[in-house]
Simulated scan of single mutants.
Amino acid sequence: MLGELIGEVNGKDTGRRVIAAGDGHAVVEVSFAGTATYFGVEVSGFGTYETELRADGTLFGEGQGVDMTADGQTVTWHGSGIGHFAEGGVVKYRGAIFFSTSAPQLERLNSAVGVFEFDAAPDGTSSGKLYEWK
């Protein structure tokens, strides 16, 4: 069951590269920077994810990143999800994300299982929402 909204994320691609391609299969790596809010605490950070284009046209993505609060506390995260192409070339991902932090104001993240809705636009912008899975 979906629980409380953990927060929202917004990003912009900083780089892309093809890791593998051939026979209708491709793996693309995307690096990005952005901002987020976790339980009302603003952070900024960066991350990288790899997306594999699968034979059925769906995408499988895995990523990781580091975010920082205004007072220098860090949050690391790992996530994975399934994506599909939507109108206008937007890729819509849905998946799970896990956090680790020693920031006192965000320690609730350490025991949270997050589920996300994340949209990546062809122009390199992205946005999403994170919910706690209860």
Rank of each mutant, 00 (worst) to 15 (best):
Y93K: 02
V9Q: 07
G11T: 13
D13Q: 12
M1G: 14
A112D: 11
R94S: 10
F60G: 05
Q64L: 04
T35C: 01
V41N: 07
R94M: 10
G24C: 05
G22Q: 05
Y49A: 09
E8L: 03
N110D: 10
F60S: 12
Q73I: 00
M1H: 11
A55V: 07
G34Y: 09
A103I: 04
F118Y: 15
E117I: 12
F116K: 01
A36Y: 01
G15I: 01
E42R: 06
L130P: 00
G47M: 04
T14G: 07
T37M: 02
V115N: 06
R17A: 09
G128Y: 05
Y49L: 12
G61H: 02
T51R: 10
T48A: 03
E117M: 06
G15Y: 06
V18G: 01
G63N: 09
G34R: 03
V90R: 13
R94T: 14
E50R: 15
Q73F: 10
M1I: 07
G40I: 04
P104W: 04
F118L: 15
G34A: 09
E87D: 14
K129I: 15
I97V: 15
G45R: 00
T48D: 02
G15M: 01
S102F: 01
K12Y: 05
E62P: 00
E4R: 08
G114M: 02
L109G: 07
F118N: 10
S44H: 09
G3H: 06
I19V: 15
R16Y: 01
T14Q: 03
T69L: 03
N10S: 13
D67L: 10
L59R: 12
G65L: 07
V115R: 11
T76L: 01
E107V: 14
G11C: 10
G15L: 02
V30P: 00
S126P: 02
D23M: 13
P104E: 14
A112Q: 04
G34D: 07
S126Y: 04
A121R: 13
T58I: 01
A20E: 15
G72W: 01
D67I: 01
G45C: 04
A26S: 14
A20I: 09
F85T: 11
V91P: 02
F39R: 11
A121S: 12
T14W: 06
D119A: 14
S100F: 05
T51G: 14
E42F: 03
E132S: 05
E107R: 15
A120G: 00
A26C: 08
K12A: 05
G114S: 09
K129D: 06
F99T: 00
N10C: 03
K12E: 08
H25S: 13
R108T: 09
D67K: 00
Q73S: 08
T125F: 08
Q64C: 02
G72C: 04
K92I: 07
F98V: 13
S127V: 08
A26P: 00
N110Y: 06
L5H: 00
S31I: 02
G7A: 08
Q105S: 13
F116I: 02
V90D: 15
R108A: 14
E62L: 06
A96R: 12
F32Y: 15
K92M: 10
K92C: 03
